[in-house]
Every structure is written in C-alpha cells, then in structure tokens.
C-alpha cells in the first residue's frame, strides 16, 4: 500500500493535522499495522516538498507547533492517477514461498513439512479474518473478504505444489 497516496486521499476530505491523519489512517486501514508518527511526518514533508500538500495553518499552544495540511490540486491529480492505475499482479515464481520450497528440495530438506507449516499458518490467519468479519461491519467484511480470497489462492497453490513436489524435485535437483 502506498502510504503517501493514502494520506493524500484522506486529506481530500479536508485539511487535517498530522496526528488526525495518523488516527484516521489507523482506524480505517491500519488494524494490524498502525502507522508510526515518524512515518506520517516524513511522508508529509515529502508530499510538501513535491507540492502535493501545503501548510494550511500552524497552531502553537503550550506544546510543539502543530501544522495543518491541505491537499493541493497537483495532489488531487496524483491521487486520481494512483486510483486509476491497476496494481501489478505479484508474480508467484519470485515469491518467498517458492524460494523456500526450491531451497528445501535442493538441500534435501522436507519441503512437504514447509508447505504444511505454511498451510497451517495461512488457515490460522483465515480463521482470524473470518472471526473479525463475523464481528465487524460491512467495511470490515469487505476488507477481510479481499484478504481471505488472496489467502485462499495461496493455499491452493500450496496444495498443488505439495502434490507436485516429486516432479519439482526431479527438475530442480542437479542430475
């Protein structure tokens, strides 16, 4: 996920302080991975430098100065372009899992064991998401469904690979 674009998108609704942006981001997207303050401020200074946001006002109370950011026209165009561009599908053969399986076969380790452990981990995550979906609202359900369908695809790949380990071993091991 592009944090810069996401924060820009949140700013489209109206100017906000860095702290508000972080809170909204965490509530909306960051269930499992909240943003660090440092990430927010470094992202905002980059966006500021690139002319995608501007400082809309500065408050100085008892504590440090608080900048309020607003999105610029260039920022809106950038968000639009990002939203309209499809994400590049991740090529599976470069994935860590494939590397692990092949390495296991090359080093004569139990590749089936690696696949089984991964499978259990995938299903554990799917259970967690199913539970979250069950207790959540429609937004939660849609976010979890997307993750679930992806994990299910991974799991199918794990099963198919498990069924083809003998053949893969013959192909990757030196004769």
């Amino acid at each position: 996920m592009s944090i810069g674009h996401t924060l820009l998108g949140l700013l489209e609704a109206g100017p906000r302080h860095g702290y508000d942006l972080k809170r909204t981001f965490d509530e909306t997207f960051g269930h499992d991975k909240p943003l660090h303050y440092g990430q927010v401020y470094s992202t905002m200074s980059r966006l500021l430098k690139n002319g995608l946001v501007e400082v809309d006002g500065v408050e100085s109370g008892g504590g440090p100065e608080r900048k309020r950011y607003a999105i610029t026209e260039a920022g809106v165009t950038d968000v639009q372009r990002w939203l309209a561009t499809p994400e590049k599908p991740e090529p599976y053969l470069q994935s860590t899992l494939y590397t692990k399986v092949v390495l296991a076969l090359l080093t004569h380790r139990d590749a089936a064991e690696i696949l089984d452990a991964q499978r259990a981990e995938h299903l554990r995550m799917m259970r967690m998401l199913t539970d979250r979906k069950r207790k959540g609202d429609l937004a939660d359900q849609l976010i979890c469904d997307h993750a679930l369908f992806h994990l299910e695809a991974d799991l199918r790949w794990l099963e198919l690979t498990a069924a083809r380990l003998d053949r893969l071993a013959r192909e990757v091991r030196p004769a």
């Binding site: 995938h122 299903l123 799917m126 259970r127 199913t130 994990l151 299910e152």
Partner: peptide
C-alpha cells in the same frame, strides 16, 4: 474449501 474451513476451530 479453505474459506469454509476457516469457520472451524481446528483442521
């Protein structure tokens, strides 16, 4: 189906 199994406690 893994998505069905995800409703279980254990597999």
């Amino acid at each position: 189906e893994a998505r069905v199994a995800a409703w279980s406690d254990r597999e």
